[in-house]
Design a protein around this nucleic acid. Structure first.
Lengths: 236, 236, 236, 236
DNA sequence: TATGAATGAGCGTTCATTCAT
DNA sequence: CATGAATGAACGCTCATTCAT
């Protein structure tokens, strides 16, 4: 593979890309996106040059421009593809119709499994996209909001079954959802390092940790800085 | 202020900087760091040019190089300053000698208060520093590890008083600490947007949410995906 | 020629370069080297800017970098080309198989003819290359050593036929070769000025001057500062 | 010495310079010239910065400007000083009134002795001054012309005593003088390297080599490319 | 479909030089 | 006599982008 490549720096093409062959557009585009996601994730948006990406994709630079117009649009296309893939993975993992906690757990499992399986994609979304200009950050923020909304709905569903539902302000639920998503992201990063937990472990830990806290809040029994109620947490 | 400025693009200087005046080196350096933190946080490392920073600081570019050697060293100096400031803020906020939960709460309050008061610094650390090269990311990672360690110790202290201490694996505590820090970061970001909660609210929500979960884990009563034990969370 | 040139300073391109046309890489490279040799020789390494050279070559600056990587490599390429050309010219001029003196004379003729025909190249080697960094100087020194060695061999060949061969220390031959090459260089410089001799004249003068001195040394009849033997030189 | 120096790179001052002391102008100027000659010779004109020179001289930069106006004038002053020193050394070495060959020999001895004793000065004149702009090269060329003229006069004096004087064209003498000076320079360079000859050896070798050749030319018995007269050189 | 050739624009960096004290 | 503070101008180099084929 990568037969005709005369890579200046000896790098080979990504995936099964073979240089010089006539290949349908759709396939070439995916090759380019593969290369770009990898390059952007590993080198950063600025440091990854169009030359690098073209070479990694096994095509000439003008072809990249022909298909993807500009570096910004290429980056945007990468983000869109990875966002779609992550959302799809989470959606597919969620067990619809199951109780809220089970849905949350399955969604988290899917999330951790996907980020672990696609580290470059996760880095692209979590690290690179936020750093380079509003439009990209917005795209990721939109996805994040989608996830937060999904979590919020699950929390609301749980609350619906609960006697204390009225005491639950919408803002509280949102805040908890944000905290939960942030915790998940943090664990996903940590899981990416060596020494971190597996996807299953991460999901389990987070559920252990979060669900009780949620119940607590729903019952209106939150920890209070005024009270000495912190005793409640570890007293039997 | 900014009297003699002949800003090419009409931008004014940051802070109380006045262009053209003779100022002692230490003062100028702080002005430069102020400008650089702002520029880096808002435009990103690559997009913020040394020209921009110099102009924002109200000095000429060579002076920036004379005092701070290079763009990389300038960025590093910014990160170091902001890391030190954030760590100091948290340290100062923690009520030493208080019970673990109270310490955690006060630390979180300090954290949220500082990030809210210094949004550019927080963006620099949380968003920009991770993206641009290992050395910077390492510096921030070290700070993060320091916070995680601090949280871990608090959790361990809480566990020590608890009957179920033996059931608590070290890894679990670490994971929870990571989750907690991630949740805090997420809330700090959210609080930075308009519409987000205040520092006090964020700290309170997170404590509500986290402390119960922690107690739950400590009691070994974690949510389990096999059991229907999720009922326990919202059942009375 | 130099049709589309919009030279900022009104300078025209070197040689037959026409700006803007698509030209094969090999040709462009030679045009660039032509321009660079000229610029370096006339302005010096530091004073000749890459902008100047690009303009003189009738191309844009990035193209120079694309083909020749950096100013240093460009300079090195110039030196290598001129070294090769000078050595080739001398080699081609030498009449192999002829007696040593005839070989020396023909070599000198070739040397003077080439330096006179390529004054910029000669300046580059003799004046500029020695001044700017070890690697360049080394390259020229290597060529010089090659010439010195060649001369040394000729002198040794002459000595071999001579009865006094044993009295000739190796160091003496080396020293004479160095002196001879230095004399040739000096004459080449002088011939470059207006008013200087032609190549033929220079070669003849130097031979007149050198060959007798050489015979003298070979016979062990050198001038001596102690003796009044200087009389021998101008006495009949 | 060099007491108050806060050299950024730990370099000490040249000679006996002591930083910060009040020192008469003439002395300071010589310190600066010492430093500049050294810096220019070793780093080249461009690479030696005014900061380096000031630091090496143990003074602040503005003082250098106060005394020597500009980098170009500083360089010119260095050249003038070194030219004067070299010319003075040669003049002092020449035994006036002695026969021409003895004068030439003593002059050469003085030349080699001085260049060996002041390698930075010699490098400045022979390598640096020619490379950087016309005015400097002219200054050195003038000195060279002075030496060539002196040699020419000696040769002419020798010829005057010779029967064949009429056959000696002025151009020939000039050419021989140029060759001789070039040979001397080449030997001076070579003597600067390790492994090269001493001043005395260089002078002796050059006289051995040159004086016979000169006599030969004066007698009109030069080597000829047409004749097979090269035999004459090494035949008894 | 695919590419070799070419460029405009900008950035990081350096340095000779000058005030104000 | 001597200097810390400050800058205008230029240069090496890179890169996204576009023709012409």
């Amino acid at each position: 593979m990568c037969a005709g490549a005369r890579s200046k720096r000896g790098r080979s093409c990504v995936g099964g890309a073979t240089r010089g062959k006539r290949v349908p557009r759709a396939v070439r585009e995916q090759q380019m996106l593969d290369a770009a996601v990898r390059a952007f994730a590993r080198s950063g948006y600025q440091h990854a040059s169009m030359d690098d990406i073209a070479e990694l994709a096994g095509v000439s630079k003008p072809l990249v421009y022909l298909y993807l117009r500009s570096k910004e649009e290429l980056f945007a296309a990468c983000i869109r593809r990875e966002v779609a893939a992550l959302v799809a993975a989470v959606r597919a993992a969620v067990e619809r119709g199951a109780p809220a906690d089970r849905q949350l757990w399955s969604g988290l499992s899917g999330f951790f499994a996907h980020t672990a399986a696609h580290p470059d994609g996760w880095t692209l979304l979590h690290v690179q996209a936020r750093t380079h200009g509003r439009p990209f950050a917005r795209e990721v923020a939109a996805m994040r909001e989608e996830l937060v909304t999904f979590v919020t709905q699950l929390l609301a569903a749980a609350a619906r079954d609960n006697a204390a539902r009225d005491q639950l302000a919408r803002a509280d639920v949102s805040a908890i959802a944000h905290a939960l998503v942030g915790a998940a992201e943090s664990l996903a990063d940590w899981a990416g390092d060596q020494g971190g937990p597996s996807a299953q472990e991460a999901a389990a830990t987070l559920m252990d940790f979060a669900w009780a806290g949620l119940g607590n809040v729903l019952r209106g029994e939150g920890w209070s800085c005024e009270a000495v109620s912190h005793q409640a947490a570890y007293d039997g």
